[in-house]
Amino acid sequence: MTLSGLLSQCLALVLALVLAPLLTGWVNQWRAWLQNRSGPGLLQPYRMLHKLFNKESVLAESASPFFRAAPYIIFGCMTLACAIIPMLSTDLPLSIAADAIALVGLFAVARVFLSLAAMDIGTSFGSLGARREMLVGFLAEPALLAVLFTASLIANSTALTTIVTSLAHREFAIYPSLAFAGIAFTFVSFAENARVPVDNPATHLELTMIHEALILEYSGRHLALIEWAASLKLFAYSCIGLAIFFPWGIAEAEAPLALIFAIPALVSKLAIGGFLLALIETLSAKMRIFRVPEFLASAFMLAVIGMLVHLLLGV
């Protein structure tokens, strides 16, 4: 473990924790602007977190210890996920802890804990949300894995740092396999982050909500942690996407000074990505819940086609 590796690791972690709510705020702000609203401002998520942390936590009478432990575990999972994704530099000491498959496993742990926590109280909304979340999850997880497999097959490795390094060193061109994988990844990230065609983060309508139904019983610091973890998840997903499909500007082990340029590169890529996310959300309508499996199955198929294209044509 080198000093620069340690430095880039800490920098990435701190950046993720600090910037994640800002990214959420940025997306929400753009959504507001695109819908001709003035919007709450970029810093609204921080105010929200501060407010929630200060409030006392109201716990349902029937809540078991599992319910109280889940927010911390989910937050821990998302933090680790942000720590192992090569967003700034491929020189990450922690990246040996988990490769692409384990990263998906990490998201799965968070999902299972959130769903189980939602079922813990025993209200009809909680279990409804858990059921829907697992429905989205069981289709999105293999699709995400298939996207990562495509990249792994190209790089001949499932280690995220190796994947990013080898993709960054390829000739600049549009690769068909990655194009398919990219579309699939976009679909999956919309579903996994509870974004508009699949779920609406701004609604509490019984018939449609997924993520909000899961966390209906949480309040105070527990809710704050879950909201923060959700921001971290959006941040992590954006960073995986950027690292695999737009891997430029990411520093490498041989060039620790590039870290200085990696930060503005990442921030500008995230800014563009966030704007596009808001744009797509504004342009599309929320799907019925029964259409979600079709949406995700098409993502899965696209990802598999991406793999096949790579295996058949080698591109």
């Binding site: 821990g76 933090t79 040996i96 988990a98 490769d99 001949n156 280690a159």
Partner: peptide, 17 residues
Amino acid sequence: RASFSPLLFFGGVLFCS
């Protein structure tokens, strides 16, 4: 090519939590 370290993984999640 591929690595997974369950102890680091578990330690990481536990530490953060």
